[in-house]
């Protein structure tokens, strides 16, 4: 019963965020549509560059053009989800911490987890990339003649969730620095996530093994699209287990949870000597 009530509460919170997003879209439709279009164009440019190279050379590193398209669709879907759930700096949490805005969250009668999960949901202004990603996925799946089973769809969802967990965990991990150095680390999440985003859309097949391993462990860009896509295509690379992304997501989120909690404890003990109002509520 309690779980049911909690789910209902989460849905209500997502619904009010969605409603506010729609209202915002309808108020400034012209600007909102421009924003959505530029988001989509920017993302499509990134993935189409890779796709065009694949077309020119008839594939990249052992992956044919349709497999590249599949990987691009995976990347676009995760980017889309990132934008759709992270409009309120809730994923770029270093901004909230660095600007001393966590106190606004403390005022709400909700756990921080629930607030951060629900308050950046913007399906209308932020759903464009996700939609394009889904369309690309359908096209690539048809071109690859993949047999879609319930198990495969579940695997797709689980891999996407694992990738999202890694993105969020990595953002929160580096954002912990903002507890200790609010000014210097205010934009650290942006640097950590967006700065490496371009790399995550490149197929790593054909690269030296040590680079591939590095990009799956130290800097997990390979887990953003390349590795999970190959797993879904039944071509798990490097003799890694197909469960590797899940294990990585779990371990990274546990480490992040521990370190972020330490940062939070530091924050409530020391406070923040900085408060800037911009970027908190749009």
């Amino acid at each position: 019963m309690e779980v049911k009530a909690k789910i209902k509460r989460i849905l209500k919170l997502l619904a009010i965020s969605a409603k506010m997003d729609l209202v915002w879209l309808l108020r400034d439709t012209k600007y909102a549509l421009t924003g959505i279009a530029s988001d989509m164009i920017s993302n499509l440019s990134t993935v189409s560059a890779v796709y065009l190279i694949a077309l020119r050379f008839n594939g990249i590193g052992g992956l044919n053009t349709d497999e590249i398209l599949f990987m691009m669709s995976y990347s676009t879907i995760t980017t889309g989800l990132f934008i759709m759930f992270g409009s309120g700096n809730n994923i770029h949490i270093s901004r909230i911490i660095g600007r001393g805005q966590l106190e606004h969250l403390f005022m709400q009668p909700l756990s921080l987890k629930m607030q951060l999960f629900t308050n950046g949901f913007c399906p209308f202004t932020g759903g464009g990339n996700f939609l394009v990603g889904c369309i690309m996925l359908i096209i690539s799946v048809r071109r690859l003649s993949l047999s879609i089973t319930l198990g495969w769809l579940l695997s797709l969802i689980i891999y996407i969730l694992a990738t999202m967990t890694i993105i969020v965990a990595r953002s929160y991990l580096v954002s912990t620095a903002a507890f200790y150095a609010p000014v210097a680390a205010e934009e650290i999440s942006m640097t950590a996530i967006d700065g490496t985003w371009l790399l995550s859309t490149f197929p790593l097949s054909g690269m030296p093994a040590f680079l591939q391993v590095s990009l799956l462990t130290i800097l997990p860009e390979g887990l953003m699209a390349w590795f999970p896509s190959l797993c879904l295509l039944g071509k798990t690379p490097l003799h890694f287990s197909k469960y590797y992304p899940l294990a990585f997501a779990l371990i990274l989120s546990l480490i992040t949870s521990y370190i972020f909690r330490k940062g939070m404890n530091y924050y409530v003990k020391k406070g923040s000597n900085r408060y800037v109002p911009y970027g908190f509520r749009r």
Partner: peptide, 24 residues
């Protein structure tokens, strides 16, 4: 006094409605 809980780019009533949901 030096901070606001209102949503900047929304009418005041929209912030109130948001509060209604968040505070249940």
């Amino acid at each position: 006094g030096n901070r606001t809980e209102l949503w900047w780019d929304h009418p005041v009533i929209q912030s109130f409605e948001w509060k209604k949901v968040v505070w249940d």
